[in-house]
Amino acid sequence: MPQYFAIIGKTDNPVYEAQFISTQKKDGTQEFPSDLKELNPFILHASLDIVEDLQWQMSPISSEGNVSVSRGGFLRSKNASTADNCYLGKIDHFYGLAITAYITYSGMKFVMIHGTSTNTNEAIDDNNCRIFYQEVHELYIKTLMNPFYNASEPITSPIFDLRVRQLAKKYLK
């Protein structure tokens, strides 16, 4: 399943984007179909409204369907022990493509479109997705610690790119 991952800043500016191609299956499901590929940024940005809604939600709405159970609203759950509430899970879908999101403490949005396999009912692996987001969050914090990097600038470091891709290979199929 291919994925399209992007980090969006507070003024909706793209900070980083990457497409992850799965190399395991060879039956044509590696990449996004070429006509759909160009739509990816649009789909992603369309879901930003939903992300922001969730970000500023005062009282969490109970969720239904195949999404994560402990959705207590962004950083508002009383049970939050660690960064559990940063991960928002699947927030949107677009003709069978699932979109998951994660918000950092400073309002940076990590959003990802999960491409389809032939079986469109396959749920996205929530746990692995959450771990992927958390690891990318850590990489992002390390990037922020670099004095030569100003916040909200595009991330151009090849090391960051390499590490994100390694994480994608590890946690996302």
Partner: peptide
């Protein structure tokens, strides 16, 4: 130099 990555011109 913890966490530092120099820009290419530097």
């Amino acid at each position: 130099s913890d966490f530092v990555e120099l820009p290419i011109d530097a």
